[in-house]
Amino acid sequence: MIRVGIPRSLAYFKYFPLWQTFFESLGAKVVFSLPTNPLIVEQGIKSVVDEACLPVKVYFGHVQYLKDKVDYIFVPRLVSVERKEFTCPKFLGIPDMLKASIPDLPNLIAPTIDLTKQDKYLWKKVWEVGRLFSSNPLKVSLAWQKGLSELSTYKQTWLEEEIPAQLNIYYKPTYSQSLKVVLLGHEYIIYDQYLSMYLIEKMAKLNIKVVTTEMLSPWIINKEAKSYPKRIFWEFSKNTLGSVFYYSKQEEIAGFILMSSFGCGPDSMTASIIQHYLKGVKDKPLLNLTIDEHTGEAGINTRLEAFYDLLMRRVG
């Protein structure tokens, strides 16, 4: 059986049900790397330039982990998943960066997904990948459909304000009477327990109900983001800002936490826009948490607890 490795990092958190189902329906065996751990981080740090952000380093670590265990590694070049919107420049260069710095890689499956201008050609990309496993377009198409339906189930769970069980995150507050706080950040940071230092679990323990961007429908997000005077051309930032605009109008929301990686380009801009925006909103404090490979857990704990105290004083 052909083994396809999928790094449990970056776009994984958004798309894995689709990818997994697709490859499995085509008869492949999918191998995920382990959840991020110190060894993976260390491997990653060694394989990419120092100046890269932690998530990119970690991605390299996941690829290193998979390298000798599979026949293919799936590392799509996600340029744009929605019209006129981009991911981060670093996503755009990922396959090339991997090839330049990790020797002896197995074959990479690295389709370029660029839907900036047209979305019809997606099928071409699906076929480009599917062809490696089956010469029957119908079979590939069915596998894709099946994958999409898995993805939509996954997304549906989010919309019900649940965190899908596959992510293994304990997020339910102990008591029903809880503070509602919006957690903002890239999926591959906030849902990666090692990178986020179990932030969601910590919030749950403090009896905070966590809501995130993924829990809002794209329809609401797009509507809110449109109210901004400039098109926000990063898909992730658009989602974040759209949800800030929306949640800040909801009375039950006590505050916002933004967790980003040190040196993250898009987040530096997003954070500035959020700060400016929240200046005009009453009673929605914001906590900025920045992580890198040297961040200590104690610091995060102290800041989270101080923020919690602040919120509690406010609700009185």
């Binding site: 990419v48 330039v49 100046e51 890269a52 981060c88 420049p89 670093k90 755009l92 260069g93 090339d96 960066m97 090839k99 330049a100 710095s101 040196g263 993250c264 380009g265 530096s268």
Partner: peptide, 16 residues
Amino acid sequence: PLTCMPEIVAHNILGK
């Protein structure tokens, strides 16, 4: 500039 994204990508590739 420090943290410049496109140049970090390029930097990594320049090694090769």
